[in-house]
Design a protein around this nucleic acid. Sequence first.
DNA 1: TTCATATAGTTAGCATCCTAATCATAGGAG
DNA 2: CTCCTATGATTAGGATGCTAACTATATGAA
Lengths: 150, 150
Amino acid sequence: MFFLKELPTRQMLETYSERYPGMNAEAVAEALRLLRRGSLLMRELDAYFTGHTLSQTRFLVMIVIDRELERKSLLASEIADRLDISRPVVTETVKALSQAGLLSSIPDPEDGRAKRITLTPNGQAVLASLLPGYFAIIADFMARPADRTG
Amino acid sequence: MFFLKELPTRQMLETYSERYPGMNAEAVAEALRLLRRGSLLMRELDAYFTGHTLSQTRFLVMIVIDRELERKSLLASEIADRLDISRPVVTETVKALSQAGLLSSIPDPEDGRAKRITLTPNGQAVLASLLPGYFAIIADFMARPADRTG
DNA sequence: TTCATATAGTTAGCATCCTAATCATAGGAG
DNA sequence: CTCCTATGATTAGGATGCTAACTATATGAA
């Protein structure tokens, strides 16, 4: 998260730019807007999931399983790959979601080390119930002018 | 952080769009690109600061003090406001930076509750030494095409 | 002056993420 | 078959963020 509220003014960046000749003031300004805007959207989504006893990561874990077309299950390592998060986080997230009855994991019959993780019917229902609100937050956020996003 | 690696294809979003009529597929696609790109840049910056015994937040705390034009010091609450982070985080960050000799905080003579936090000369030097690399990472990142950012 | 309320900062406790180390199974070279 | 290495998953420990509750000081109304 990057929440610098008042981004540097153009003039401040020019000043830095004189001190640090290699720097590209326009690229920096654009990057800071990107970071700020992304963080604000993330904060809104986090609040949404927290309000539903979930988290961004737990939601995304369910999403990547749900969106598999030819398979019903993923291995923990596959989830970690698709989400670009560390494996311990997957372990912990799957444990929590399983306890909540949203996922189930069964030993892989073809690989004694692996577990196949699937959405339970309840998990599918919860995911389906969350998506409209998720899309609504995004649509609302993207419709706001960038400088009014915060 | 939001690290969904393979963003949904246009077709998948269309499919969701049929299931969830309120959703704006284009806005969602753009939002996901924003989140992914922002997260990747943040990850690169985090790695940079970690490699210099710092963190994004510690760096930003120094930045907002440094960029005050008319004042040399800020209160913890002012830092929290400018960075949009919680006060306990400021407390902890200032403590760590003070122990590292980069900040100093003295009791405010006009308000017995407050502390005035300033950059030490060493803090200014460290900040100055970090900025070129910081700007270089940003410039490099922004120069890469968006679909090759990861 | 006195008390209620607001504000500055800290502490405590929780959530979430990471890396490094560990355990168990797979799979291939010999 | 046996051993070495690779891979799936977990555990342990640390960093960083948050909210809620607390302490101390300030401020203003009665």
